[in-house]
């Protein structure tokens, strides 16, 4: 069943699903990162698909070291790209550049690790992965041949 069609989840289910504590979820709501979450007749929170989507965005942005204030601005832009103020657009553009840069670094790291794993798999005398991590690429072992 798709998340859109799923029934709203109680707070305990969301903590298990996203790995966020109940206190964190309530805090996000309190500071406005999350709009007021729906409640049952007895006042218990119920998180819908839209809430879960925002929470995932927040969690992703936090892993990129964005502050909660920045995440708030990014969420406003996410909600209303055309109506976002220039300051929010500028912040979003800056963060976009940061994400692009980090993506490039991650791609390089991925390629490096893949190469090391391939070397390890093909090596007869052990695994050069550890050696590679310890030495880095300082070029000290480059040997020109006359």
């Amino acid at each position: 069943m798709s998340e859109r069609a799923a029934r709203p989840l109680p707070i305990g289910a969301v903590t298990r699903l996203l790995g966020l504590s109940a206190d964190t979820l309530r805090y996000y709501e309190k500071i406005g990162l999350l709009p007021r979450v729906g409640r049952t007749a007895s006042g218990l929170r119920r998180y819908g698909a839209r809430d879960l989507s925002r929470l995932r965005f927040i969690r992703r942005a936090q892993t990129m070291n964005f502050t909660l204030a920045e995440i708030g601005a990014l969420l406003r832009f996410r909600e209303d790209p055309s109506g976002a103020r220039p300051r929010v657009r500028e912040l979003t553009a800056r963060k976009f550049s940061e994400v692009e840069r980090r993506l490039g670094e991650l791609e390089h790291l991925r390629d490096e690790l893949r190469l090391l794993l391939n070397l390890c798999a093909a090596s007869r005398d052990g695994c050069p992965v550890i050696e590679g991590i310890e030495e880095g690429g300082d070029g000290s072992r480059r040997r020109p041949k006359p």
Binding site: H108, D111, E112, L115, N118, G139, S140, R141
Partner: peptide
Amino acid sequence: HVCVVDVVAELDRAVELGVRAT
């Protein structure tokens, strides 16, 4: 002109060149 390069010592350059194995 031939230059023998230890891939472990030149990881960055190897990755930039697209080297995936030796």
